[in-house]
Design a binder for these strands. Sequence first.
DNA 1: CGGACGCTTCGGCCGCCGCCGAAGTGTCCC
DNA 2: GGGACACTTCGGCGGCGGCCGAAGCGTCCG
Lengths: 236, 236
Amino acid sequence: MTTRDPTATGLARLAALFADETRAACLLALLDGRAWTASELARHAGVAASTLSEHLGRLVAGGLLTEERQGRHRYVRLAGAHVAQLVEDLTAQVAPGTAVRPRSLREASAGSAMARGRTCYDHLAGRLGITVTDALTARGLLQQETGFALTDAGLTWFESAGIGLDRRSRRPLTRACLDWTERRPHLAGVAGAALCRHALDTGWCVRVGSERAVKVTAAGEQALFDLLGVEPAALR
Amino acid sequence: MTTRDPTATGLARLAALFADETRAACLLALLDGRAWTASELARHAGVAASTLSEHLGRLVAGGLLTEERQGRHRYVRLAGAHVAQLVEDLTAQVAPGTAVRPRSLREASAGSAMARGRTCYDHLAGRLGITVTDALTARGLLQQETGFALTDAGLTWFESAGIGLDRRSRRPLTRACLDWTERRPHLAGVAGAALCRHALDTGWCVRVGSERAVKVTAAGEQALFDLLGVEPAALR
DNA sequence: CGGACGCTTCGGCCGCCGCCGAAGTGTCCC
DNA sequence: GGGACACTTCGGCGGCGGCCGAAGCGTCCG
């Protein structure tokens, strides 16, 4: 007990940050990749502002969040893709257990909008994310047989679609992220993020409500059909 | 507060299992992929048997461990590769912070044995894992440029080396696992596990001590040189 | 059969942590 | 300047959870 494994100490300390329902709710909310103010999160989590302030202090001190003060507001966001990935990994482990039984119509429709399409921090998820990933795979742009990697044709596709990929990033170019509604892998990593950013920038998708859900626009349906042969019906 | 997000509840509950130093120490110890008895873990963690019994109860109930009773012994092991991956992911996040400063000679040499080669649940890690992964990559058997995937040549290599790969598993064939000593990715997933099992079965490596460390044998040096062109010096 | 041993249960202790409301600080806007 | 507002700090409360030792149960072995 005198000399404890420092790795164990660190692991426990890190996990403790996730091990509270209020903080967990904040982290899940922040998975949308945007910055939230302290009071927005307090309302979202259903606790007093003072309580949430302390939680934010811990999360920031623990390196999970970064903050940005603007006037009387304190904006926080996830500290990076690595944190988002951790939240996703833990959530994926959890989702199997939760019987998804929405209790109100409002919740049900919000849930289905989320299932249809949403962002996972910085890439597309939900049925939209799966559909795009499947389309990339079917066209030979992404291969999942022996791993999860773009093919040469895939690299060319991104280039010709005008979606720039930062090849020098330390972050992996592609990564498989397990979807907790669909339970199937979808494209994450640098390529997934670039695709998502492009989709939002060019109006293929728009955010719906204040949550993570996104909706494909008419222009988006057209573009996905032209570039990947995705039938619009698959997106609804 | 009346209707809380079930995902947040589950996430917090799961994280709470990791959020205790004693349980964290157990999970790290179990990363060697073997079954430990309750009293071994109690001694390892430095707590009373009664205390550890309760911890094991929680970990098993939470689905992180599976148990196997034999006579008066209770053997526990990680519930699967997914759990090991979670522990690894969290640890990788933690390791950056821990200044690695061994305080005794014994600890230092144990640490360096671990750094030289060890298992990460069911695949090779440490410098050994990195070296093998690099060799596979240099020979065009594994490609990391646009993802992390075996090439066709890689599939052939496994076959001709007599290392069977279960292609029908739901687990990904390859996965990049971030090493916490080397901070570089090494081969995990089905292929990584098969390679490690083969290495231990055929005596390329042997376990050293009761921990996760492994050592390359003379036969192993020869085999790795023949099959992958790895210079024996790179393994020492 | 009896003692050693591995594990579990129980009661009790203690410290930590999440929660709140009240009061305080700084910012913005009229 | 003054009031509304976002956030923080503080004190206090309550509960949970980790820890232990003692006692109990089952297994193993001489």
